[in-house]
Design a protein around this nucleic acid. Structure first.
Lengths: 139, 139
DNA sequence: TATATTTTTGCAATCATTACAGATTTATAA
DNA sequence: TTATAAATCTGTAATGATTGCAAAAATATA
């Protein structure tokens, strides 16, 4: 995962004019590793930016996606989450506490070349189950 | 992938009373490997069962899921697809023709044991890109 | 300072999914 | 067979996430 010092500059480097809303939304994604939903982002930033509109959150995330600095994490239907870590990694979702954990994954570990003549541009891998703490709570 | 000769019996074996609707819906999933959406299933079966309701399709798929004979394939947000092949396999989605291809995958190929103390119950893997025929059409 | 452009906002529209209650079908018991 | 109960199916209304759109606000340009 790339460490971003200056969000404004990072946005600029990726062809995005850094408005207050855009900076705060990206910043929120960086600081909240749980891969928040639009709702979570909106509610969390509403204190800081009282005029914030949910449409802006949607628009901004769509812009981030189109510039390739944010990926969608699609595990449950009707629970679109966003991830500003664009390096290759997997996700684990705990069915009990609903938390989402990242895990590192060598691209080569999943280098499945069963698709000769196909061009692969994205690969996604996720697991579901029970996390350590939820398991120990069950005893 | 398990080959099912008698859908009615298969449903019974899995604790589902085989109504006409249930049999036809499962049968449709078996014969249509593209992992259809609710809409596709509903529209395709409307000729055969003119009284069919979309709610029934939803209810039936939910029942199949709860009995473990159908899995959800969640690749795009807002495009829930259904798969009656419950054996472990991966999916490839072509960004051009939107077709979904299955591919075999040894469970061991993805046996990532980075989660000591975690209990993993599901694992999902999918790729996106361009399929062979769409690639050759581009030349 | 005036004007053009970009960004944000709020509300209405859309679309997939679910809730629900009545209608229909199937199973059970007399 | 017939009456009754249980399960299943259906259609419509409700919900909730997302998008479209046009006006308002902010920023850039001349």
């Amino acid at each position: 995962m790339v460490i971003i010092q200056n969000v404004g500059q990072y946005l600029l480097d990726n062809g995005i004019k850094p408005s207050i809303q855009r900076i705060k939304i990206f910043d929120f994604l960086m600081k909240n590793h749980e891969h928040p939903t639009v709702d979570k982002i909106f509610l969390s930033l509403s204190d800081e930016i009282p005029t914030l509109s949910k449409t802006t959150v949607y628009n901004t995330l769509k812009l981030f996606q189109s510039q390739g600095i944010v990926n969608i994490v699609n595990i449950e239907d009707h629970e679109t989450r966003y991830d500003c870590d664009t390096s290759f990694h997997g996700h684990f979702k705990c069915l009990e506490c609903k938390n989402l954990y990242d895990f590192e994954l060598e691209n080569t570990e999943l280098n499945i070349n069963k698709f000769e003549g196909f061009k692969i541009t994205e690969s996604h891998y996720y697991l579901k189950g029970l996390c350590k703490s939820c398991l120990s709570n069950k005893i």
